[in-house]
Computed example of a mutant assay.
Amino acid sequence: MEQTTQDSLDPNHSLADTDWYLVEFQSMDDAIGTIRPDDPRLYIMRLKGDGTVSMKLNCNRGVGDWSAEANNETSGGSFQFGPLETTRALCPEPSLDEKIAADTAFIRSYILEDDKLYLSLMADAGIYVWQRYDSSIGALFQAEPDPAIEAAILDAFPDYRQEIIGEDGQQARYVYSRVDLNGDGKEEVLVYPMGSIFCGTGGCDLLLLTPEDCAYSLINSFPISRLPIIVTDEVAAGWQNLIRPESGGGATPSYVLHVFDGQQYIEQERLPGDVQPEGISYLLGEPTFDEGAILKLN
């Protein structure tokens, strides 16, 4: 396979800087037929304008390169992925993470039609059908620098200084999603800082901020969390419930339900980790460290 390169991608390509979720895999083998994921939130693909791709693959994530060349006579053209690097967690069955990761090496063409992206395997082995991402699935993470969010993070972590991370240490990064949790028309912010001071083997700290004048104040600093964060329809003390995934460090994967007590969120119940609870997901997209906004030191 010819390796893709970031330089080979036209930055004005119609697929550049687009987000997709998996609808189905159509096999040409009648014995396999069509395979659809139980939850489309589990499989998300972000084709970036710099020629890189990031994927959420159930409980795993993948990063690599992509390239495409449009055919002026059709709504498609050639398409290839470069080698995809993935994490190796064992996802609950049924899962398509391993199949998708393996099949990326054999994608050869695409068709873009009615907000659907059809990626075809070589030798007519099958077609992956992706739907353009929309807010009904949830909210992808944001990484545009925000001084007010940064100030709130630094207030919550005053020890984030050069002497803590060391002279050779990297500055931390952060991503976030906005959501109105209490129906007042003002959006709270779920913030996920990434870096040695914030993270462990089970994920990273999670902050919940609420707007206050021209700044943000801290409501909760949750312990080590995975993503995405789920907001349910159920309400306590006027605020929607939150659910965090926890795994890693030898602990059994689980979801942690939090309810608002009038001042902050408190843990109410632990749920099995094999089925994602109902609700709208935030901080979707499996952000990598390099994708986050740089957090300046205190």
Rank of each mutant, 00 (worst) to 15 (best):
175 V>W: 01
217 S>Y: 03
183 G>Q: 02
223 P>Y: 12
181 L>I: 10
225 S>E: 07
208 L>G: 07
206 L>W: 01
175 V>A: 01
178 R>G: 09
222 F>C: 09
198 F>G: 01
173 R>S: 09
206 L>Y: 08
234 E>K: 12
214 C>S: 15
164 I>R: 14
219 I>Q: 06
207 L>M: 13
212 E>Q: 15
214 C>R: 14
231 V>Y: 00
202 G>M: 06
186 K>N: 13
207 L>V: 04
214 C>D: 13
178 R>Y: 12
224 I>S: 15
213 D>M: 08
170 Q>C: 05
200 G>D: 11
202 G>L: 12
175 V>C: 08
225 S>Y: 08
218 L>F: 00
191 V>Y: 12
230 I>G: 12
184 D>F: 06
163 E>V: 13
185 G>K: 07
191 V>N: 11
213 D>K: 13
200 G>M: 01
181 L>W: 08
175 V>M: 07
207 L>Y: 10
212 E>R: 11
179 V>K: 13
232 T>K: 02
221 S>M: 13
210 T>G: 11
213 D>S: 15
169 G>C: 03
181 L>N: 06
182 N>H: 07
211 P>L: 06
163 E>K: 11
208 L>V: 05
234 E>P: 07
209 L>A: 08
178 R>L: 14
234 E>R: 12
190 L>H: 06
177 S>M: 13
176 Y>M: 01
178 R>D: 12
198 F>W: 01
213 D>E: 13
192 Y>E: 02
216 Y>T: 07
198 F>V: 07
199 C>K: 02
